[in-house]
Amino acid sequence: MTRELKLNGQTISTNAQDGTPLLWVIRDELKMTGTKFGCGVASCGACTVHIDGEPTRSCQTFVEDVEGVEITTIEAMSKDKIGAAVQQAWTELDVVQCGYCQSGQIMSAVGLLAENKKPTADEIDEYMWGNACRCATYQRIRAGVQRAAEILEA
């Protein structure tokens, strides 16, 4: 069956069967590869997208559950006010190393700043806990979130 999804402000159709993770609709079918596959069990956060603005693990979100909701991926972040601020902060601080987790880190950071304009280090740690970075860029992620908060405040 064909379904319509709302992704990055556009309506797209998919033939994915029930039970197909949104991650694989995005990557395999739509060929949008900014959203990464890291673990498949919602344990690393590399696949984080926004569902109605809420950071969500797309590897454990199924296509039949996302009809009619707003799906947003990393590819749309430069047009998002908070997303652009986070990307600017990430650039200023050279946060990335291998970069494979960073799409997910940025999606979570944007979710955090949307609900908390000025998070403390502890609040960042609590919110970002589920986004693993094997390169351990954590202290720059922490600083990046706080720098993005400053950029948004200015």
Partner: peptide, 21 residues
């Protein structure tokens, strides 16, 4: 010097081997 690989790693455009299609 800023990292040369930052830009493509923060907007989803960088190509990793997993991204080949």
């Amino acid at each position: 010097v800023k990292r040369k690989d930052t830009a493509v790693k923060i907007d989803g455009s960088g190509t990793f081997a997993m991204d080949f299609h």
